[in-house]
């Protein structure tokens, strides 16, 4: 057998696997999004209806728009806060003191926790009767005394954001520490001798050189924020009302709870579009050539 044929044969299993687990479901869901697609009907009745699912989402469903806004707000807040906090932490930890390796090990711990578990534990800690955080905030900020956080639309959203930031900061901090330590030390020292103090040094020399890594962090976190589901599902289940219902949660509810699998598929495809842009940008930054 010629090497040329052999090399294709060798990658074939992997290609088939990707096709069966990624490409085919994607195509199938696209097909579903153009049908009635009800889980409680036989396939013969799930006829093609064109763009009706899409127009329904856009024109007839305030809940869809609600989940879009929730997702966008959630993404904007979590991405910006996590990035800024992780950058601050990375700057504190990067120079390398004695504690560094120990702290780094501790840092990774929240990331080792399943988002669903983070959701459960935050729900527990914000329980109005025996929750630790509920009592804590109530004690230090009397405004919040006796407030049931998860019953208030704004505060429930805030709790989701807090849980998300808590879970994500460690990993992003580690990524940024890696980025910081790849900046040549001599450029920093040259700037110090040239006359740059703390803030200028950061703005003129550190930040521009960290930019590619920072971009990766922002894009990666945006992807994860946009598709948030498990944490919200366990923490608030989209409530109160639909105050914390993200798109993923909305898709889950329509598809698996209400059985409108065709409609859910169309909303899912609406979500795929920004995701494609983000993954493209991500790949561009990660595989960039210097």
């Amino acid at each position: 057998m010629r090497d040329n044929t052999l090399k294709y044969l060798l990658v074939l299993p992997a290609v088939l696997l990707v096709f069966a687990t990624a490409i085919w479901p994607l195509v199938e869901s696209l097909r579903l999004s153009f049908t009635v697609g009800r889980l409680n009907r036989p396939p013969s009745l799930q006829q093609y209806i064109g763009f009706e699912n899409y127009t329904w989402a856009f024109l007839e469903e305030p809940a869809f728009w609600n989940s879009v806004w929730v997702t966008l707000a959630y993404t904007a807040v979590t991405v910006s806060l996590t990035t800024v906090l992780a950058l601050g932490l990375a700057l504190l930890l990067a120079p390398g003191g004695r504690l560094r390796s120990g702290v780094q090990t501790l840092l990774i711990l929240p990331f080792a926790m399943s988002p669903a578990l983070i959701g459960v534990s935050f729900r527990f800690m914000f329980n109005p009767e025996f929750g630790l955080f509920d009592a804590f905030f109530g004690f230090f900020m009397p405004v919040f005394a006796g407030v049931s956080w998860l019953a208030d639309p704004v505060l429930a959203f805030a709790v989701c954001v807090m849980a998300d930031i808590w879970g994500w900061i460690p990993f992003l901090t580690l990524v940024l520490i890696g980025g910081l330590s790849s900046i040549p030390r001599e450029t920093i020292e040259a700037a110090q001798v040239d006359g740059a103090g703390g803030w200028r040094l950061f703005r003129d020399v550190t930040l521009p050189q960290l930019a590619p890594v920072l971009a990766v962090v922002v894009i990666l976190k945006s992807i994860f924020s946009l598709k948030t589901f498990d944490q919200v599902f366990m923490l608030t289940n989209g409530g109160p009302g639909t105050a914390t219902q993200t798109l993923s949660h909305y898709i889950y509810f329509n598809g698996l709870k209400y059985g409108q699998i065709g409609y859910a598929a169309s909303v899912a495809w609406l979500m795929v579009i920004p995701m494609i842009f983000l993954t493209y940008a991500y790949a561009k930054f990660v595989f960039r050539k210097d």
């Binding site: 001599e186 450029t187 020292e189 040259a190 001798v193 020399v205």
Partner: peptide
Amino acid sequence: AMVFQNYGLY
């Protein structure tokens, strides 16, 4: 003013 071995250019 300092000149570095690896230049330390920005």
